[in-house]
Design a binder for these strands. Structure first.
Lengths: 109, 109
DNA sequence: AACCTTTATCGTAATATTGCAATTAACAAA
DNA sequence: TTTGTTAATTGCAATATTACGATAAAGGTT
């Protein structure tokens, strides 16, 4: 096979996995960190920052956008990407909800 | 191509991406949540919990173990899996170090 | 209009992931 | 030793991801 059996898992499990997957590539981490660093959503110069071709960057930006991590606004003939403020903290909470489930008191080994 | 260009990114970016990747599948989220729920590291009955064949579960467990999220200890002829206490919080911190970089004051859009 | 700049999309090749049947390995129990 | 139980490994098919050249689309500039 190879196809992920998403239907067998809960909505929440799939959502969390999808978010993690979006973060699961160094180029996308690098893109996010660049956006976080410059704060102002400087756009296509991400291509100059990273050692990847323009279509590849564009593809990664699309995935980050689909995951809700970033947003892009048209500005003249270029596009301004930046952190999706509305979702960022929400996604952080979703991720932490998994990590916070751990209780070291009752862990057996 | 298709091969991820890990060499072009920092150690940290690759580490974070690898961790996120390990979390990037609903089956692995489900396995982690089961381990978190039962607290005692009940072992191979994960296979009974999830709608996946034993070799598939075994493979997912291996990936979670490689990522440092869980550990497995031999106990008789079965193996006891549980959350890797030592790494769990550390990994949570690594993930949060990304999310905490966001400063809504200076975000432009 | 013709031209340039910027970004998305298409097409395709290389590689990685997912899933499982079959088998093996390791150990316990009879 | 033989048998049973549990989990890892192997081998392979199906699918997904990654990367990029070529091209298209959209808007600005002259």
């Amino acid at each position: 096979m190879g196809a992920t059996k998403t239907t067998h898992f809960t909505e929440r499990q799939n959502e969390l996995a999808t978010l993690a997957k979006a973060l699961g590539h160094p180029a996308r981490i690098a893109i996010l960190e660049h956006l976080l660093k410059v704060n102002a959503c400087i756009c296509g110069d991400i291509v100059n920052e990273l050692p990847l071709a323009q279509p590849t960057i564009s593809q990664h930006l699309k995935e980050l956008k689909n995951a809700g991590l970033i947003k892009g606004e048209i500005e003249g003939n270029s596009i301004c990407y930046c952190i999706n403020e509305k979702n960022w903290r929400k996604i952080q909470k979703i991720v932490n909800s998994l990590f916070d489930k751990f209780n070291s008191q009752t862990n057996c080994c």
